[in-house]
């Protein structure tokens, strides 16, 4: 529920200002992009560039509003965060993305599985990576072999299902 704060701390909120700058940049990029579109509005009078322009100005307005709130320190407090677990999950997703087409679904996803588990406190990767790979392989088998969903295969998958 909304928190009633009678005495808002009037302190400049740098993070909020960065958000405001980001919104303004997105708005600017949209304006720049829509400037290069040919005006093919045809009979409607509303061309492909019209809606992006409206949205862009909306974003710029919101950026200004955010900046004002940031300067007045009206932004809500953010919960304290541990960066390490977040980075483990992001790393897991990045590894999966890079390995998917070379190592195959099971290995890549097994690593994601293990890294996520580590972020939530299961630190022993020597145990979680094999568990993850076996689990991902079972899932791969069910979906790609029985349900014919196309999932990338790597050396492990080819070992068990040559030609698959």
């Amino acid at each position: 529920m909304s928190v009633q704060r009678h005495e808002p701390p009037r302190r400049r909120d740098t993070a909020a200002l960065i958000v405001a700058a980001g919104l303004a940049v997105i708005g600017g990029v949209m304006l720049w992009d829509s400037a290069r579109l040919a005006d093919l509005g045809g009979y409607s009078g509303v061309g492909p560039a019209s809606v992006p322009r409206v949205v862009a100005w909306g974003l710029i307005g919101l950026a200004a509003w955010t900046a004002v709130e940031g300067l007045r320190g009206d932004f809500p407090e953010r919960p304290a965060q541990n960066p390490a677990p977040v980075l483990w999950i992001v790393a897991g997703l990045a590894v999966q993305l890079m390995l998917l087409h070379t190592a195959g679904f099971s290995i890549a996803t097994g690593i994601l599985f293990a890294f996520t588990a580590r972020a939530f406190g299961k630190r022993n990767l020597a145990m979680t990576i094999p568990i993850g790979i076996v689990f991902a392989f079972v899932v791969w088998t069910i979906f790609s072999q029985l349900l014919m969903l196309h999932l990338p295969a790597g050396p492990l998958e080819q070992l068990f299902f040559p030609g698959g």
Binding site: I142, Q145, L146, L147, M148, F161, G163, G164
Partner: peptide, 13 residues
Amino acid sequence: SLFAGAMALPAMA
């Protein structure tokens, strides 16, 4: 049911 699927769709591609 999965087995029914398996029979309908052989593994070799």
